[in-house]
């Protein structure tokens, strides 16, 4: 697997699109939530309350959530796009076919891609963990080590969310193959198609007289999103759960469990689809 990974890195380290996406991700991840501070720093009057609220998002342990939420969107846009590029480029340039002709088995070709995805997920998680810890240490008044270790399940959640998102990108690329179409499906499914499907499901259940709001949480990309959901929504969801017995967001243990299940399912479906297809 290490040799497959090394070969894969050789293939893409000189690809300017992939390099650019990597640079953007590395440059934006540590600073994206810090930019909010800059926007509202000179706010006066009633808006200054926003400035005060924003300053709290950098404190430990809340920074894990806010930084995780922002970084998971960057993973979705930059690293997901990178995975799409890595696969669909091989199809369009017909190098995938040539790799197989030169001697790779389908399994080796697929494993090489998976190894890079795992590597990207590990790097992104390290970057997320380091940047969150540093931002938290700088901003938290009266910082001590115990605060840093508080809520560090967030690192596991971020890793599962990242690898789930990237395997979803791999699945889309394997199934749709063409760069433009894959990109459209990759962005449209979680942002447009799945919300519509969730809405239709709830509507059907209400019409059938069996309303269940929690069913919408079990849609695949919603489950992955719930691993690193916007903290305010999490607080709101916990409130609703206590007072109305209704939870628009998975609890963390369920989100982690379901996230692992969907990640495995994305990987399995991607492999099965790749295994059956002509090259």
């Amino acid at each position: 697997m290490l040799q497959l990974f090394k070969t894969e890195i050789k293939k893409f380290k000189d690809n300017s699109t992939i390099k650019l996406l990597g640079i953007f991700f590395i440059a934006l991840t540590p600073f994206v939530i810090l930019t909010l501070k800059g926007i509202f720093k000179d706010a006066t009057g009633p808006i200054s309350i926003i400035n005060k609220a924003i300053s709290e998002i950098y404190d430990l342990p809340m920074v894990w959530e806010y930084q995780g939420y922002a970084a998971s969107w960057l993973v979705f846009f930059f690293l997901g796009f990178m995975v799409l590029q890595m696969f669909t480029n091989e199809v369009s340039q017909r190098t995938m076919r040539q790799n197989i002709i030169f001697g790779y088995t389908k399994k080796e070709f697929f494993t090489a891609k998976v190894s890079v995805i795992i590597f990207l997920a590990i790097c992104a998680t390290i970057l997320y963990a380091l940047s969150s810890a540093i931002i938290g240490m700088i901003h938290t008044p009266g910082f001590d080590l115990e605060l840093l270790l508080d809520n560090n399940w967030a690192i596991l959640r971020f890793f599962i969310s990242t690898i789930g998102t990237l395997f979803f990108a791999l699945l889309v690329a394997v199934v749709f193959r063409r760069g433009g179409l894959s990109m459209f499906i990759y962005f449209a499914y979680p942002l447009i198609l799945e919300p519509i499907m969730r809405g239709l499901t709830i509507w059907a259940l209400i019409r059938g007289g069996k309303p269940s709001w929690t069913i919408m949480n079990y849609f695949p990309m919603n489950t992955i999103e719930d691993l690193m959901v916007f903290p305010f929504i999490r607080i709101f969801s916990d409130f609703l759960n206590i007072h109305e017995n209704m939870s628009p967001v998975h609890s963390y243990p369920i989100a982690i469990g379901m996230g692992i299940v969907y990640t495995a399912l994305f990987l399995f479906l991607a492999w099965k689809s790749f295994e059956k297809s002509d090259i």
């Binding site: 040799q3 293939k11 340039q93 190098t95 076919r97 040539q98 030169f102 001697g103």
Partner: peptide
């Protein structure tokens, strides 16, 4: 087996040396 099917397909942003190194890796 060494084979080329239809048009030659290599990584367009890599030079000849690097493309052949990748083939070498694949063929172990």
């Amino acid at each position: 087996i060494g084979a080329i099917l239809e048009t030659p397909n290599f990584y367009p942003y890599l030079n000849a040396q690097k493309n052949l190194e990748i083939v070498q890796d694949i063929k172990q």
